[in-house]
């Protein structure tokens, strides 16, 4: 019963936040609503016994990514409101609604009609509750937490992927520095007329 209540609260937080993100005129508000959604997702993770991921979700998403968003918003001074009443591209909104509805319908039909097929046999290669590899570290299976399970898999079966992510992050940092550096040459002038012309 408690889990149901937690789930309901989390779902409310998530969906409310999501609506807030897409409906707020001000990007700062969007970012704050995003934080709300991310917290909701973290709660869902706890509900799903993924405690480590819940922590990471809060630290990485709420703590780093959203802060980065806010930084950029503040840095560039683009916190002005976006006029949501105007849609420059004809037919974009109806199409977007249709697509979103179709996506929702498709995913729902997967869950509702063919969802049963997803519940196949339990995993044998990477079981979540029986901690086989942790034995080597001297801990008893009963004391195994999901952090241990994740960690042991991450540094054994998935170590190559893990190292690759390290490289990826390094590249991302270097790329970001390179991109955000101020250009040495004069800034190319680009008038509004050009922009209007470009939109046409």
């Amino acid at each position: 019963m408690a889990e149901t209540i937690v789930f309901a609260v989390a779902a409310l937080l998530i969906l409310g936040g999501a609506l807030g993100v897409i409906l707020s005129r001000n990007p700062v508000h969007s970012a704050l609503f995003l934080v709300q959604t991310l917290f909701g997702v973290a709660i869902t993770f706890i509900d799903l016994d993924a405690h480590f991921l819940a922590a990471v979700q809060v630290i990485v998403y709420a703590g780093a990514i959203v802060i980065l968003f806010l930084f950029v918003i503040m840095l560039l001074g683009v916190d002005q409101a976006e006029n949501l009443d105007i849609e420059p591209i004809a037919g974009q909104r109806p199409i977007a609604l249709i697509i979103a509805a179709a996506t929702l319908a498709g995913l729902m039909s997967v869950v509702l009609s063919v969802g049963d097929k997803l519940t196949g046999a339990d995993s044998v290669t990477g079981p979540l509750d029986a901690v086989i590899r942790v034995d080597a570290l001297g801990a008893s299976p009963e004391s195994a937490t999901d952090v241990r399970v994740l960690g042991s898999h991450l540094f054994t079966d998935y170590v190559f992927a893990f190292e690759i992510t390290a490289v990826l992050l390094t590249i991302a940092v270097v790329g970001a520095v390179l991109l955000a550096r101020r250009p040495s040459g004069p800034i190319e002038s680009f008038s509004e007329d050009d922009a209007v012309e470009a939109v046409r």
Binding site: L15, I22, P27, V78, E82, Q92, I95, L107, M108, V110
Partner: peptide, 20 residues
């Protein structure tokens, strides 16, 4: 998850601010 995904897709198609 399905609802959240659809909302995200909708927002992506509707909003013009690249940050949003």
């Amino acid at each position: 998850s399905a609802v959240l995904f659809s909302l995200g897709a909708l927002g992506l198609l509707v909003r013009r601010n690249p940050l949003v």
